[in-house]
Design a binder for these strands. Structure first.
Lengths: 272, 272
DNA sequence: CGAAGTTACTTTATGACGTAAGGAGTCGCA
DNA sequence: TGCGACTCCTTACGTCATAAAGTAACTTCG
């Protein structure tokens, strides 16, 4: 987990909400030899690094290199790596859709929201590694939050209950996204596909725990019963990796279960 | 996020499942001057470091220091930090309860499980920062998984559905635990309480976004409506920090919503 | 025109990290 | 007494964020 927002709070909020004093610039002197960087350019480059190579690869050197500068050049525009992370975090949240057609139907609205949010998190998996407590409090994150609340308003539930549902739904989507993201990263880092990994590991597991079925009877029973034979993927379409397919199944099923639970709360409200 | 299990898979599984060759030891020589370390002692010390000071403070140097050795001394017993993490991860999972009284009542069983798991994760918050994809596959983690599956068996649902519920419930509990854990860590690192933090931040927010209520109408309405006046905590009992209280509310409400969703699935099964 | 001031950027340095390499000390057994 | 096995230490390398100080280019002023 990477902690953002460690720097000067006022400076950080200024940068996030773009309330920097516009004057003062070009007051006397002029720029140096180069075309000149900007905080925006740095944030864009940093997002590209994180998207492509993951949070672990996000170093000031890497961002600087992408811009043809040294790491230290960035500190002219960005106070620290922590603040840069804040800016990156809020910048990508601008991608979240804010308009949903069926506001009258809370269920389809929330389903769409969940799918969009999952897709967003898979485009920018490093977002999951930014601490959630003490949130960044940027304008785009708030916009995303406002959208979710608006969709929840359609349920007609109490404000106090809606408040909790925001966290519940977010936890779930983030959890699913995390599983997929980590599986992808593991595959990228090790160069070993999910299938290869699982094949090797289950062989070792058989060596090392020959009594597996006796030690974990419920788990074993469920696995042998509940694992469907997967159909071979249609020719021409890329087979989805094992762990990712599992995670997406969990997402679909779990989302329906949660929405059923919300539905139950709505019904209960009608007939107390 | 910290990735474990990067080392030699066979060695790692051997260590996890304690299938090291027992011979070979003390074959010819004797130990050096010191009483002698062991993998177990190192794992215990490493868990203590991570529990007390967080994952960021878990360095080989720090663990060695706690044992009165240098960082390099650990490498005699543990192949790498990654493997040490595997061992730590599985070792703490031994704390998870495996017996639950009311197996006949799936709802109370799952509720107890969720509370126990939350408490476990809050005792060892660094567990949340170990990657979930490509799991560690140790005996104690499997025991915890088997327990959850056993409780889910009480629902009578299909194996394929139960499979997905494992992930759904886990994501939710982990998400709640993560919020609390991160809030605690932020408070510990910055020395600033949730209340102080929020007070300072909301003042800045008012400066920087005076039109907040207009920009985020749904969110603002929900906040002003759904935030209860919190009663002053009884004298003598420690007031729970703001963010932690919020997270625990989300946990309680969200868990009930999820269990209602499971209940709906059970009813649907009865009357197709 | 030249000096001074301002900014953009680089170089260098510090103390952290994981861990490779190469000892040094101690013991059992020959 | 010497050898091999074993534990543990010192040193070293390349990485990280970032503090401090230096350099180069430009604008403005004298």
């Amino acid at each position: 987990m990477v902690f953002a927002g460690q720097g000067d709070a006022r400076r950080s909020m200024s940068l996030l909400w773009r309330t920097e004093q516009p004057a003062q610039r070009r007051r006397g002197p002029g720029p140096g030899p180069r075309p000149g960087l900007s905080a925006d350019a740095i944030v864009t480059a940093a997002i590209a690094v994180a998207d492509e190579d993951g949070m672990a690869a996000l170093s000031m050197r890497a961002v600087g290199e992408r811009l043809g500068r040294t790491a230290m050049a960035l500190y002219t525009y960005v106070p620290s790596k922590s603040e840069l992370l804040d800016l990156m975090y809020d910048a990508v949240h601008a991608e979240l859709p804010t308009r949903y057609a069926g506001i009258d139907n809370w269920r389809t609205g929330l389903t769409d929201w969940a799918h969009d949010t999952l897709a967003f998190l898979l485009r920018h998996p490093w977002v999951l590694q930014v601490s959630q407590a003490r949130p960044v409090l940027g304008p785009h994150e708030y916009a995303g939050l406002d959208t979710l609340v608006r969709l929840l308003n359609g349920t007609g539930l109490d404000a106090s209950l809606r408040r909790r549902l925001v966290g519940t739904l977010t936890h779930f989507v983030r959890g699913c996204a995390g599983t997929v993201a980590e599986a992808r990263q593991a595959a990228a880092v090790t160069g070993e596909s999910d299938e290869e990994w699982w094949f090797a590991r289950s062989a070792l597991l058989g060596e090392v725990a020959p009594d597996f079925a006796d030690r974990y009877p419920s788990l074993s029973a469920m696995e042998s019963e509940g694992t469907p034979q997967q159909p071979p993927s249609a020719p021409g379409e890329e087979a989805m990796p094992y762990l990712e397919r599992e995670a997406r199944e969990t997402f679909a099923v779990g989302l329906d279960v949660m929405l059923d639970g919300i539905d139950a709360a709505i019904r209960r409200m009608g007939t107390p």
